[in-house]
Design a protein around this nucleic acid. Structure first.
Lengths: 159, 159
DNA sequence: GTAGGTGCAAACCTTTTGCAGCATG
DNA sequence: CATGCTGCAAAAGGTTTGCACCTAC
């Protein structure tokens, strides 16, 4: 039951799961049914999910997946770069899958908690430049703008 | 015992503490000896401190300050913009005081945990621009570059 | 005098860990 | 069949909260 295909159709996320499988196997990890399920759910979610939410998703399909396994798998996925953790600023953490997504940054609405994604090449370039100036080698970065989204601004004006 | 001066000399951080005092009073908060102490220690620290470290600093001067009060005061200071919280990426949080500092961003070395500060006006401008494009109003932002600092790169090369 | 603030301890939440049993390679 | 992985429950951080007492205004 630990084959790559599972019952999923040959969708984009099916292909992506296969990439994860291959990479983990090549790194000496075993490919278990739990990992297949967790990876599948993580890739299928287009939201920014918490560990707990991912656990819930997995338990809908297999009620006995343990919290510890979800955490352990998330760690592996993060190490291998398939998933990226974002601090939400209030002590919490959310994850997003990276596979098949271009790099982007985030705007977090303080009112509705919505997360908007954006990208600006010039921003990326300036960061590289700033790092180069002091001889710092960037491995990854995190840019988050906190504020109020368009919709919530409108609602505030109504009051 | 809740006067603004305390025993501190009329230093920069003395003046700054007075600003915090005035602002909090004007917002309807009471100025207590505990808050004076916590603010004083937070302003005097030039490092990026954790809540626990701040508690320790405070307890050196008054051993009975409670952890809860430090947390509650940090929340107020953060709300009022005197202090800024940074997620360290590993689930922890550190704070830095903002008063008298220009805004800056951070590079975090994964090897030695050192935090370098930098600033780039063009970066700030591009962020504003990106926000404007989607009608987002920025309240604050957080940009962190994770990687390896100059020194640690050297040491890696030695090996 | 009365909010609001404080200290204490317990509660909370998220994440990690020890261990015995199980499944993969 | 050996090692790595899982599930469970307990432990470990870090932060928040309920409550009785205290203190600034």
């Amino acid at each position: 039951m630990a084959t790559s295909g599972q019952s999923q159709r040959a969708t984009k996320s099916g292909k992506e799961a296969a990439i994860v499988e291959r990479t983990l196997r090549e790194s000496g990890f075993r490919w278990t049914s739990q990992r297949a399920l967790i990876v599948c759910e993580a890739l299928a979610t287009h939201d920014h999910f918490t560990a707990e939410e991912l656990l819930d998703l997995c338990r809908k399909k297999d009620p006995k997946v343990s919290r510890a396994t979800v955490y352990r798998t998330l760690t592996v996925l993060e190490d291998k770069g398939f998933v990226e953790g974002l601090d939400t600023g209030d002590g919490g953490r959310r994850f997003e899958h990276v596979l098949g997504h271009e790099h982007h940054d985030h705007m977090v609405c303080n009112e509705c908690e919505k997360i908007l994604e954006f990208r600006d090449d010039e921003l990326e370039r300036r960061q590289e430049l700033a790092a180069k100036r002091v001889g710092f080698r960037i491995q990854r970065h995190s840019l988050r703008l906190y504020g109020t989204c368009k919709q919530c601004q409108k609602e505030q004006r109504k009051k």
